[in-house]
Design a protein around this nucleic acid. Sequence first.
DNA 1: AATGAATGAGCATTCATTCAT
DNA 2: TATGAATGAATGCTCATTCAT
Lengths: 209, 209, 209, 209
Amino acid sequence: MPKVSANERAATRTRLLEAGKAEFAERGLAGARFDEIAVAAGHAKGTIYNYFDSKEELFFTIVGEWCALLVDAIDAEPQGSARQRLRRVAELDVEIARKDPDLALVVVQQMPTLVVSHASAVNAALEPGLARLAAIVRAGLEAGEFRSAQSADTIVRLFLSTLSSFELEALLPDTEFALDDVVGLLDRHFLEGFCERAPIPVASTEDIS
Amino acid sequence: MPKVSANERAATRTRLLEAGKAEFAERGLAGARFDEIAVAAGHAKGTIYNYFDSKEELFFTIVGEWCALLVDAIDAEPQGSARQRLRRVAELDVEIARKDPDLALVVVQQMPTLVVSHASAVNAALEPGLARLAAIVRAGLEAGEFRSAQSADTIVRLFLSTLSSFELEALLPDTEFALDDVVGLLDRHFLEGFCERAPIPVASTEDIS
Amino acid sequence: MPKVSANERAATRTRLLEAGKAEFAERGLAGARFDEIAVAAGHAKGTIYNYFDSKEELFFTIVGEWCALLVDAIDAEPQGSARQRLRRVAELDVEIARKDPDLALVVVQQMPTLVVSHASAVNAALEPGLARLAAIVRAGLEAGEFRSAQSADTIVRLFLSTLSSFELEALLPDTEFALDDVVGLLDRHFLEGFCERAPIPVASTEDIS
Amino acid sequence: MPKVSANERAATRTRLLEAGKAEFAERGLAGARFDEIAVAAGHAKGTIYNYFDSKEELFFTIVGEWCALLVDAIDAEPQGSARQRLRRVAELDVEIARKDPDLALVVVQQMPTLVVSHASAVNAALEPGLARLAAIVRAGLEAGEFRSAQSADTIVRLFLSTLSSFELEALLPDTEFALDDVVGLLDRHFLEGFCERAPIPVASTEDIS
DNA sequence: AATGAATGAGCATTCATTCAT
DNA sequence: TATGAATGAATGCTCATTCAT
C-alpha cells in the first residue's frame, strides 16, 4: 500500500531522467547542477535522492539507458552481410538519437571523456553490445567480405566512435548536416572501406614532397 | 626593465602550459584544478594569474596552441590533390599528437563538449585552419576529384572529427590501435569515400527486412 | 473506536522506543537518524510521528523512561542509613542498566552533553528523583552520618555522575570492569568518603614540590 | 618568502582553534557548524580548510591539544606516593581546565561519546599518558600502598572518568560546586578508597531488605 | 493509523579568484 | 613578479518533517 502508485513513481523517475539528460547534455557530468535538474523536473532537489544515490548514478543510469537501447538495436538485426548489419545498427542508433536527441548528445559528447576516465564502467554497460558487434565483424572478416589490418574489437570501437562523431555533428545546431545524412555517410566513408574493390591508386605523400 | 628576463618569463609560461595540458587531459575543463597545475609547474597558484586571466583563458590558450600547430600544418602543404593534401594534414596532425600526447588528448577529448557549449570560442580559434581546409576541399569538389552531397564546410568538420576519434582511440592505453595506424585508416575509410570509383553495390536494408 | 487496538498501539510504541534506544546509544541525539529507527522498528518513517512529535521528544521520552525507572528505584527503598539507601539506589540503577544496556548507554553517554545544552529539560525529568535523593542525603548530613563541605544537592549530582561514569566504563566492550563491580566500587570510593573515620593523612602536594 | 609571517599564521590558527573549542563545547562534534566557527574566529568559512582538512580533524586537534597538556602534566610530577602523584595529576588537570574552560568542556562532555564511537583515535592520543598513569598505579599496588580488585589499567580509566565528571559538574553554570573543590573531592572520594585503613563497617544491603 | 514520497533548509566541502606582502 | 593566505559563492548531499493517499 504505497502512498503513490507505481505509475506516479515511474513518472517522477522519468521526469528526473529527462531533466538530467538535458542538463548533462548541456554541461557534462562535472558541470551539471542538481538544482537545475530538480527545477527542470518540477521537483525539489532532495527528491532526486529518492531515486538515485548520487550525481554519478543518475548520469550512468542515463548512459546505461542508451547502452541498453543500443544493445537492443544490435540484437534486433541478426541477418545479412556484415556491412548490411552494421549499417542497420547505425540506422537504429540514429533512430534512437532522433527520438531522444538529449540522450544522444549526452552520450556522444561525454563518451571520449568517459572512455578515458571511467573506462571500466562504460565498458561494462556496453560489453554485451560490443561482443555482439565484434561477432558480426569477425564473421565478415572470416567470410572474406571485410578486409582490415585491425582486429574485430578495434573495428567495433572505431565504428562506434565514428558513428558518434557523425551524430554529434548532426545534432549540433546551425549545421546543415542532419541525422538523415549519418547512415549514408558512415556507409560510404567507413564501412565501404572494409570491402574489397578496385582501389583508386593515390600517390603516397612522400612521392610528392 | 622587468625583474625577470624575458627568457625566464617564457620558461615559466611554458611550464604552466605543460602542467595545464596534463591536468586538462586528465580531468577536462570543468574538473581541472589550479592547485594541481601550480604544483605540477613548480609554482604558486597565484602565479598562474600573472600569465593567464582565468582558467578558461589558460584552457583556450592550450587549445589555441593546438589550433595554431594545425594551421601551420595546413599551411605547410599547399600542393597535390585534395586527397593528398588532406592526408598530409592528417599526417602532420598525427605528428603533433605524437610529440605532445597530452595536448592531443585535451583536444580530442574536449572537442565534442566545447563544440556544444563554447562553439564560438572554438570556432574563432580554428577559423583560419577551417577556412584553409575548406578551400582545399572546395578545390577538390570543383576539380571533380571529390564527390559528396555535403558542403565543403561540412566535409571539413567531419574530416576533423573523424581524425579526432581515430586519434583518441590510438591514444587510449591498452589498445592495439596506434597512432601509426591513423592516417592509413583515415585515408582508406574516409577520404577515399569522396573519390570516384566503381562502387560495390549493397542491397539496401529495406530489401532484406 | 480506533482501527488498531490499544494493545497494538502500545506494542508499536514500544518497538519504536526500543529501536530509538539502540540508535541513540550508537549515534547520540544529533547523529541518530529516523530512517534507521523506523527500519529497525519495522515501520515507516512517518509512523514515528504518530507517536512522537519530534526527534527530541522521542529522545526525551527515552531519557524520561530511565528517569522514571530511577525514581521508582529511589522510591522503592526508603529505609536504612543514607549510605545504605544510596548504595541501594545504585544497585537498582545497575539493575536497570543490566536489563536494558542500550537505555543505560543513551543516558550515561549523553548526560554530560544534555546537562550543558538541555539543562532545563533534563532537570525537569529528573526533578522528582533528585529531590528524593537530596532528602536522603540531607537526612544523612543532619544525622551526622555524612560529612561534606558540599550541599545535599551537589552531593546528589556528584553521586549520579560518578555512578554514570562507572556504568559507562562497565558497559564499554573489551573492558574487564563489569556492571557487577560498580556498586562495590561506588560504595568504597565515593560513599564511604562521606562517612566519619580515622583519615589516613596525606602530605599535601605543596609539602613535596 | 611567505605572504604572511609565521606569527600571523599561528595567530589565525589559534583563533580558529579557540572558536572551535567554544562551538564544540556548546554543540558537540555532530552539532557544531563551521559557519559559526568561522564567524566567531573572524574569518571566512573556507579559511578553516587552509588549516584543517575536515571538521573531524579540527575536533581531534582540539582533543589532542588537551591530551598533550594532560600528558605533559603527568610527566611533570614523577615523585611521591601513588596517591600524591595522582592527586598532583588531578591538580594539574584542574589547572588546565581553569586556564581553558572551553577546552575542558569539550573534552569532559564528549569523552563518553568518543570512547564509544571513536575509541581508537582517542586511545591513540591518550596512550602515552595512560601508560604513564598505569605505571604510577602499578607501583602503588606493588608497594602495598594501593589495594583494589581492579587492574591498574582499569583504575586509570576510572580515575580519569571520575575526574572528568567532577570537572564537568564544576564547569556548569549555576552550580555552587567549583573547580577549587575538585581535587579535594577526588582525593577523598576516589583515591582514598584505594588506601589501607580501618573500614567503617556497613551492613550489606541484603541484610536489611 | 500507517505509509513513504516529497520537501527544503542546513551543512561540509571545494576551488577559482583576489590581494597584501 | 611571485607568493600563498584569505575569500565566499557554489554545490552535492543529508535528513527531520510534512502530508496526500
